[in-house]
Design a protein around this nucleic acid. Sequence first.
DNA 1: AATATTTATCGTATTTGTACGATAATATAA
DNA 2: TTATATTATCGTACAAATACGATAAATATT
Lengths: 111, 111
Amino acid sequence: MASAKTEEFSTDEQALAAFAKALSHPARIAILKILAEKNACVCGNIVEVMPLAQSTVSQHLKELKNAGFIKGTIDGPKSCYCINTDAIETILENFNQLFATLKTKNETNCC
Amino acid sequence: MASAKTEEFSTDEQALAAFAKALSHPARIAILKILAEKNACVCGNIVEVMPLAQSTVSQHLKELKNAGFIKGTIDGPKSCYCINTDAIETILENFNQLFATLKTKNETNCC
DNA sequence: AATATTTATCGTATTTGTACGATAATATAA
DNA sequence: TTATATTATCGTACAAATACGATAAATATT
């Protein structure tokens, strides 16, 4: 029974977990970096640089898009992706909020 | 063939992906929050609060420990966990570095 | 020594993720 | 219209994650 009990947790926790999941594969982090670096939105150019098949890269792009990290527009037969700057800001706030909580120095620790 | 081609990517990307993976489940985020909130390091007390079986919670704790987020010490028959404050600092820097890259506003975007 | 308590690990079932090739879908170019 | 180029989706195979019950391991207590 691995029936993903995610619904048992708070909305905030689920959202942050979803963001983290999008970043939980080095390929997706690499894609994000590429998109941030290139001043134009590459599309199939990503595939050339990545050590993965075209279909796999497409899958990763889809996940990044679903999680909100990137946007995509159709440009002729090509697809053009880019960083969703506004969303990134929100996602960063989510992470920062967690880390702020975790950094609360605790003097009475047992380890 | 889902033979995890993680080794094809940079060490930085692999490390960050591993950190993100540790945060990719709401249960683990919840556990981190609990550990941060309690002024003493709870152990089996976590199980009481979580909607999961003891063995499952233990698994999640192990993953958080492996990723470096928490430390654990044995205290009699009990196990005592707490936030690894130093590690959290480093992990946060890793995330911040990525987000800094992603936030680099790009004027020549196609979408 | 025997029992109770607490936690980690094992075995297992199920779900999800990862990756690829093949193919469909879409739009441009000839 | 036909061919070409690009990308998304489908089908599939395998790997990894998730969850639980059962049990082992370690220590405290009686």
